[in-house]
Design a protein around this nucleic acid. Structure first.
Lengths: 241, 241
DNA sequence: CGCGAAGTTGAAAGTTTTCAACGAGGGTGG
DNA sequence: CCACCCTCGTTGAAAACTTTCAACTTCGCG
């Protein structure tokens, strides 16, 4: 982890990409800019560990991160995959609780880091900001809801199809003939996130590729026929060619 | 669904059991009491459906409820099982979004129902209340986190053990020699919540019973040896007798 | 008393995991 | 600049697990 010293203007431009602060008053932005730090993390480095005191809020502005938890039997379960812009563990930070899980950067990343005390006082002064925070939490709750629902899918093919469709929907690219999805983490982490083994994910990709629904090119997945994926969700027996 | 007309004093006593409002000022409690409705639902009745406009907040004060979503293939997935006291879909209500899932009462239940507009203005007047709301959302986020993590458990036995331990921990009863857990819904719904078939849950209970870890008595589960369950979580090979 | 929903149990079928081996890619050090 | 190593990803075959299908029992309720 390295602390960068960017020009205030650059810092300000990063700041405006963070959804929570995008509509702040100039005064608040000024305060934030003066106290925020721009941090650089290597791939494989940890942002925080479960149990750490949450005294700073990190906003991911570039790169990628994952939140994972270590289960009693020693294995790890990925709870969340983040692409920028995203807030990391904002709920724990605002509540002043220790982090409930670990944060690992899956690529070289940049984060904006804000001291908790300052955020608290800003929220207390500005009801608008409180509502936006509640909105953030709602959004995350909704994501988790979707994730749990998708774990209900019977087999691996369905879960993967559901995941791919979810990502293309969230991506800003045209979903026309051949949308492209770049996986936000190595495939083994995607597999863990989806609740299957890396081998199963590999086989599932191969199967979808053979069916003509996608084309796999390293971490990039080309969606050739979204309709095929959608059919898999509708009926788990899409009579593959 | 039937609207009851309780005495204000009774209504007030229900109100104080709702965590979000337990520390409200007398004035706020007065306002809430005058606008709140006490509703009675039958087992099998719906509180709301996905897509409905969330214009009231329901607090479960007795009985039981489940939140479930219908997947594209027509099957249902239970996302949450509620025992009183609990708030139902508070995030959607405060954000003014339509409900993202369905609410079904698993037993005859009583809820306190508050009009959204009133809650919003109360939160805006009272920063303390806003923080408690954020705390509520944090709590729910945390629950979902645990749930997703528990879906990471390899086999059904481990998931069930994890679930049982989670419930005893949340229950106020002594966890001494033989704690007792009453399932908050029929076993088929518990199974769905855990992401397994009812048959598998039945077999798993039988297995745990044979191992001497629990005793199943209808919807009541006696935890005979919590340590056995904990061992299952630590190592998925607890050399069963 | 009898019906229907819920739960249990058995055996076969289907899926995923596990174990193992191999190939490709990136980074490091000689 | 190349060899080496380690991680990641892929593929195969066997093992383990869950689901499915079906029959039967239990329980609650009219």
């Amino acid at each position: 982890m390295k602390t960068l010293r960017p020009k205030p203007a650059a810092l300000r431009s990063y700041l405006q990409r963070v959804p929570l602060f995008s509509q702040c008053t100039d005064e608040d932005l000024e305060t934030l800019t003066s106290a925020a730090m721009l941090l650089q993390y290597e791939r494989g480095e940890h942002g925080f560990l479960a149990g750490d005191k949450a005294c700073r809020l990190d906003a991911l502005v570039s790169g990628g991160a994952q939140i994972y938890r270590t289960l009693p039997d020693g294995t790890a379960k990925t709870l969340h995959l983040f692409s920028p812009p995203a807030l990391l563990a904002e709920a724990a930070v605002f509540m002043g609780f220790p982090y409930p899980a670990n944060c690992l950067f899956t690529e070289e990343s940049l984060t904006l880091s804000f001291p908790r005390a300052q955020l608290i006082s800003m929220v207390e002064r500005d009801p608008q900001l409180a509502w936006r925070l509640i909105g953030q939490l709602y959004g995350k709750l909704h994501e988790f809801t979707d994730m749990i629902a998708s774990h209900g899918h019977r087999n691996a093919v369905t879960r993967v199809a559901s995941y791919l469709l979810g990502v293309v929907r969230a991506a800003p690219q045209g979903d026309g003939p051949a949308a492209r999805v770049v996986l936000p983490a190595p495939k083994k982490d995607i597999a863990n996130y989806l609740g299957i083994r890396p081998e199963s994910l590999s086989r599932t990709f191969a199967q979808l590729e053979k069916a003509g629904a996608i084309r796999v090119d390293g971490q990039a997945i080309h969606i050739l026929q979204a309709s095929l994926l959608e059919n898999i969700l509708l009926d788990s027996d899409p009579e593959e060619s």
